[in-house]
Every structure is written in structure tokens, then in C-alpha cells.
Design a protein around this nucleic acid. Sequence first.
DNA 1: GAGTTAATTAACCAGTAGGTTATATTGGCA
DNA 2: TGCCAATATAACCTACTGGTTAATTAACTC
Lengths: 122, 122
Amino acid sequence: MLDQLSQKFAALADPTRRAMLTRLSKGQASVSEVAKPFLKRMSMPAVTKHMKVLERAGLVTKTKDAQRRLCDLNPDGFKDTVAFLEKYRQLCEESLDRLGEYLESITNQSNQANRKKTDDRQ
Amino acid sequence: MLDQLSQKFAALADPTRRAMLTRLSKGQASVSEVAKPFLKRMSMPAVTKHMKVLERAGLVTKTKDAQRRLCDLNPDGFKDTVAFLEKYRQLCEESLDRLGEYLESITNQSNQANRKKTDDRQ
DNA sequence: GAGTTAATTAACCAGTAGGTTATATTGGCA
DNA sequence: TGCCAATATAACCTACTGGTTAATTAACTC
């Protein structure tokens, strides 16, 4: 049995499940509503399983409504993943800064050709 | 073969690999330096494999130095994972706000017992 | 050139993940 | 009561993961 954080990253490591989360970020939906875009590609039980993975990871909650199960994002569920990556976001920004400095350095000693290249990159 | 983003989340879904990243966030290290804390628990080839997963996911780079392989974090490699979760970070903050409001509401009608409990939680 | 250190590769195994089809459960409705 | 819809479970299959031990490669050192 994996720890909670590993379960969350594992849940995120599947494009189908990420697409489901994206759908839910637009609002509550039943399992079959969430399933709709995927049913050409895979069966209903496959969708049910994916939902269960998201639920057990704590990223999604379900509530009963007659036969339907209404699914919601659990925003708190993302906190520890975000917190873990926060340490590295700092590094991202630093590396962006380094890129900025680099671009600046080649701009300072710039000629037309260099400036043209930089402009193209926008 | 998984897409790049799935590979990254999959790479993050293992506590050993996350620990390796944390080690590397403190600075460059050879494979065996990174391996050291894990060699009671697992063999060297296991560590090599984990490093390869991180490398193929684009989270780590390796450079040759004689027999050694020096490993570095690749900060840019974290950008798309952070970007994906950024959408949900907003929701986190909103839910933090709700928690704040809730705590405030119970504080306003507070008694000693309530305040004591909250203090313990620090 | 022989030995040593650092790291990888090969071959293998058990467990898990992601899919399938078929079956069961649960609740609204005629 | 009997049927339909929404969802879940069971049983199964294949492929991948994470580990093992043994062997290999590559570069330094004496």
C-alpha cells in the first residue's frame, strides 16, 4: 500500500484521469457525465476504476443522488502535491531568471541578427 | 509509451525517487552519493533504475566525470507539472480561505475550550 | 597489464495497473 | 411488480514496475 502522496502522483500519472479532473474543475458531474468523452475509447467499468483511483487518492469526492454518484474535486487533496512541487517551483523561477539574464547578455552585445532571433521567440 | 507529463507524475509517484530529488535539490551528486541512504534498503541496480526513470522523465540530467555520473536537477523539467497543478492551486487557496473563515467563525463565538484546541493544532 | 571503483546491463520474478466482458446492485418509474 | 438506468463488482488477461543476482563496461591507479 502506497503512502498518500505517492497515491496522488500515481493518480495524476494518467492522461484519462487528468482529463477527468479537468472536467470536474468546471463543476460537479455524475460518473456517466464524466465518462462521456471516453466511452468511444474505453468501457464504463474502466471509467469507474479510474474514478475510484482518484477518489482513493483523495482528489475527488462522491456523493449519492438516487442511482447517480455526483463527483466533485477535493481542492484540499491537491495541497500536498502542490506543496512538494513548491520547493522546485523556486528552482524553475531561478532557471527562468538565468534565461532572462542570458537573453539580456546577448542583447547587450547585440547586433541586428541576435535581436531578430530573440523577437522570433516571443 | 506514456506522454511526457504522465512520465513525470509517474516518476514522482515513488518515495525513493522523491527522496532522490530532494537530495539533488541540495546540490549536484554522483549516482553512488545519491544512492548512499538507500543501499541498506535496496541494491545498486535498483538505484540505477530509479535514476533512469527520473532522467527519462526529464527531471534530472547526468554528465560524465571519469567513471562517475554527476546528477543534477533539471529545474525546467518541473515546469509542466507545476503548470498543471497551478489550475488546482487556485482551488486550494479558496478552500484555505474557507477554512480561515470557518476558524474565524468559531473563534468569534469562542470559549476557552475552543481556543485551547486551536492552539494545540499549531 | 592487473586490479579496483563506479555504474550499467541482462535475465529473471512477483505484484500491480489498466483494460476487457459478464454479472450484480440499487433506485426511480409504468 | 417488473423494467430500465446508473454504477459497481467479479473474474480474467497482458503489460509494466520494482526489485533481485550475476555479469559487463569503462576509467582510474599501481
